[in-house]
Write a protein that binds this DNA or RNA. Structure first.
Length: 292
DNA sequence: TGCCAGGCATCTA
DNA sequence: TAGATGCATGGC
């Protein structure tokens, strides 16, 4: 793929573990092929692999910076891990997934992906996202499809969305796309808000509850303190549940996800934690947000 | 074949 | 306001 650009280095991988990161449940458009990883994000397709401690990519050179940012190659994980070493549990997390990284993904991709994820399983999530891209994503030079823009998705109808076989989630996707396309929900605005306000704004969207909101805040908006993970550390860390994780914790994909959230909580202090925030009481049907 | 899935909105007590 | 329920679809 992308043969016009031979493999070239994006820089020091700084311990990045592609397998751990790309299978941790943060992202759904990566496939392993012959020892490399092929993925699409932000309208770019890329193939990446690790070699001699460097992250190599097969992509147009003008996309290099985008992928460096995506893989967070600028983050000093060594320093972070040194801090984590002071906590026994965090040290266990680091030991379990030392090369796990929090990807910096486009807001709209994350919002849609986690709307699709609710009450769903990962193989099916990947299938729905793939069909969504086929439906209205821009064709890329290598034959793949970009994730749809908010405008392209907003132009769909419940009928055209039927091919996704996404069930009730299709309505959530359309509402979210329209809110973003119409400027009622702006990622740059959300990212500038305090954590609580950003979460509240997201949760005005139909289909966005606390879990989806936190995933969007963390993966798509850079809110590294999106979740006070101490609760989840107790509930979800497999090492603490050798007989199996409680179902309620399974959504966070075990230790890898835990590590992400703990990392998030401790990395970049911003806003305030909301321990165990519960969903507001049921009220009238939500509509797209009016703020922003 | 039946259970369950990376939730949420809505209804009911 | 907490708990129960239904939701669409398909992986396993």
């Amino acid at each position: 793929m992308l043969s016009q650009q031979p493999w070239h280095s994006l820089g020091d991988a700084r311990g990045l573990d592609l397998d751990a990161t790309l299978t941790s449940g943060q992202c759904f458009r990566w496939q392993r092929q012959n020892g490399t990883w092929q993925g699409v994000s932000g309208g770019h397709a890329v193939q990446v692999k690790l070699e001699d401690g460097r992250l190599l990519a097969d992509c147009p050179a003008d996309q290099d910076d985008w992928w460096r940012r995506y893989f967070a190659l600028d983050m000093d994980y060594a320093a972070l891990h040194a801090r984590f070493a002071r906590s026994r549990r965090l040290a266990a997390c680091v030991a379990a997934a030392p090369g796990l990284r929090v990807l910096r993904q486009p807001f709209f991709e994350v919002l849609c992906s986690f709307l699709i994820s609710q009450n769903n399983n990962i193989p099916r999530i990947r299938g729905i996202i793939g069909r969504l891209c086929d439906l209205c994503g821009e064709a890329l030079p290598d034959g793949q499809r970009a994730f749809p823009t908010p405008q392209a998705l907003a132009a769909q109808t419940p009928d055209t969305m039927a091919v996704l076989r996404a069930g009730w989630r299709a309505d959530y996707l359309l509402a979210a796309a329209r809110a973003v396309a119409e400027g009622k929900l702006r990622p740059e605005h959300l990212a500038a808000l305090p954590l609580d306000q950003a979460r509240d704004q997201l949760m005005t969207l139909r289909g966005v509850g606390p879990k989806v909101a936190d995933c969007v805040l963390l993966y798509g908006l850079g809110f590294w303190d999106a979740w006070p993970s101490d609760v989840w550390m107790k509930r979800a860390m497999p090492a603490l549940f050798p007989k199996g994780m409680p179902r309620a914790a399974a959504g966070y994909r075990g230790i890898a996800q835990q590590y992400i959230f703990e990392y998030a909580r401790r990395s970049l202090p911003r806003g305030t934690d909301k321990k165990g925030q519960k969903k507001p009481a049921a009220g009238p049907k939500k509509t797209a947000v009016s703020g922003g």
